[in-house]
Amino acid sequence: MDPTRVMPYGDMPNDGATQLSFTLPVPAGEEAKEAARQLVAKMGFAEPSVAHMQDMGESFSFFIVYGRCTATVDYAAVRVPRAEFPLLDAPRINAMIAKLLGRRLKVFGACIESDAHTVGIDAIMNMKGYDGDKGLESYKEIEALNLGAQVSCEDLVSKVVTEGVDALLISQVVTQRDVHVKNLTRLVDMLEAEGLRERIILIVGGPRISQELAKELGYDAGFGPGTHAGHVASYLVFRLQQHEDEAPGNPLPEGSFHGSHD
């Protein structure tokens, strides 16, 4: 295989075999089938062939089409931004927090604004965790509080002030019409307006969240599908360590505060 020219592999190397499925808003028939074939050809696939057409009523037709992909990608040149940090186990994480901070790390999690889908934040925060990986509540050096669904940015920002939070974990699952981008931006804007942004570690997670998007929106890190609490906890320690390296001797992250009314 030539890593500078990677393409799909179906049955033979470099055969470009690709399966597509989609609906067209036209009634099923020979014209619809030909339209689907032409459409896939215009997408850049060679030898498009319609494997299946289904009349779905209401003048909708469903297609399964195969085509030969002709594009290639230079795999060697691919770069994906991601939060780079060493993965640690729970005892190590606890020990590092104790050493670096000298107290428990306070982490709040929330689905903000209209988002009511807590599956992600629950998996990261709650004792039980997900997939055998226990949540942040299970770490003895982390004080984790899951605020749950539909927490308004106002409430969250006021909690950061009154409770002395070290890190915020924001979950956004609903992404229709980019509502997650609006919510996430709003929170960052409010934290910045209150002068709180630099004092906390701000993390976002969700099925459509990438490190790239997180950075773009002003978050420290973004975690997508497959993230476990261990990843998040390791990242938190990594950030604490980073701070320690930059400002040795100072046991607290920059500007972190514990007074209840700063």
Binding site: M56, G57, F60, A116, Q150, V174
Partner: peptide, 24 residues
Amino acid sequence: SQARAGVLQGADIVAVIRHTAQSL
């Protein structure tokens, strides 16, 4: 329109999901 298609395909019950957070 989508629900009509679903009924013609065999659906017996159609639910319209509400606007996110209408419950509040």
